[in-house]
């Protein structure tokens, strides 16, 4: 770059920086600020690069010797010998050395325990949710779901009435034609009048299944595209999920609302070690 080009770059930088203060004082605007920052910082940078690359090119390149990395000068051997002599000196008092090792190990063990404070024990939390027999199904805004309120071939997200917004108890309620459901008899009975509910957590990575494909009556995960067949017990038909979605058994309460008939048929979400097969 020529001297003139470098000068232009610096002038642009100065003007942009001054403009920046003016814009800031006037209340600011993200786009103008960004453009001016680009010019102010970029102008400075381009000027400096041009200065070093163009105006100082006559300084040319220099050559200097590299620092050698000799391993043969014996320094290493001397160091090893010194260290080992020290070890031998300390190691002569064998009992003390062992006690020292024991003290360090014991302290290390004691220092591990605070890690336990970081979280609760998993226990059986992962294996069950807050659904119990008789708990009413409510939508995200807390409205109980009446039998028949849901239109055919539509879906909604439901929670236990006392745990709205729950991360593990969330379920999708879908109303389908009862004759089209292909479930074992006991699970068919848990889907009154074609109202079938499954866990909303994908069995792959635990994303909420937000997509209901009405044409094929499939639930699909927006994260990794696992797809579950609603009519056939939500078994996976595509994608990386290995297991069907657990079903939430339903019954109809005396007030005509849908209620849970128990917890999910299986633990919800992705599989883990303690999951019995």
């Amino acid at each position: 770059m020529s001297e003139r080009a470098v000068a232009v770059a610096f002038v642009v930088s100065i003007l942009a920086a001054l403009g920046l203060t003016a814009v800031y004082a006037a209340g600011g605007d993200p786009q103008v600020e960004g453009a001016l920052l680009l010019l102010a910082l970029g102008g400075l940078g381009v000027g400096l690069l041009g200065w070093a690359g163009g105006l100082l090119a006559h300084l040319g390149e220099h050559t200097e010797p590299r620092r050698r990395h000799p391993a043969a000068d014996g320094d290493g051997d001397v160091a090893v010998a010194t260290f080992e002599a020290g070890v031998a000196e300390v190691g002569r008092r064998r009992l003390l050395a062992r006690l020292l090792a024991g003290a360090v190990a014991a302290l290390g063990l004691a220092a591990v325990f605070p890690i336990r404070s970081l979280g609760s024990a998993p226990g059986s939390q992962l294996a069950r949710t807050s659904w119990r027999r008789g708990v009413r199904l409510v939508t995200a805004d807390g409205t109980p779901v009446q039998l028949g309120a849901l239109e055919l071939n539509t879906f909604t997200t439901v929670f236990p009435e006392d745990d709205v917004g729950s991360a593990d108890a969330q379920a999708v309620l879908i109303r389908v034609d009862p004759t089209s459901l292909q479930l074992p008899p006991d699970r068919l009975a848990a889907a009154p009048q074609g109202h079938v509910a499954y866990s909303k957590l994908c069995t792959h990575a635990g994303c909420p299944l937000g997509l209901y494909l009405a044409a094929t009556q499939e639930l699909r995960c927006p994260c990794h595209q696992s797809t579950f067949d609603v009519l056939r017990g939500a078994r996976p038909v595509y994608g990386p999920a290995p297991k069907p979605l657990p079903q939430l058994p339903l019954e109809v309460g005396p007030d005509g609302t849908l209620r849970a008939a128990g917890d999910f048929t299986e633990p919800v979400g992705p599989s883990w070690w303690d999951l019995p097969r």
Partner: peptide
């Protein structure tokens, strides 16, 4: 090793590169 000395050429270049990097990031940022 053959190249440009730290002072002044390499330092000016490094500084220039720093400001260009910042300028591009801030430009995208706005």
């Amino acid at each position: 090793v053959t190249g440009i000395p730290v002072w002044p050429r390499f330092a000016l270049k490094a500084l220039g590169l720093m400001f260009v990097t910042w300028g591009v990031a801030a430009g995208l940022g706005g």
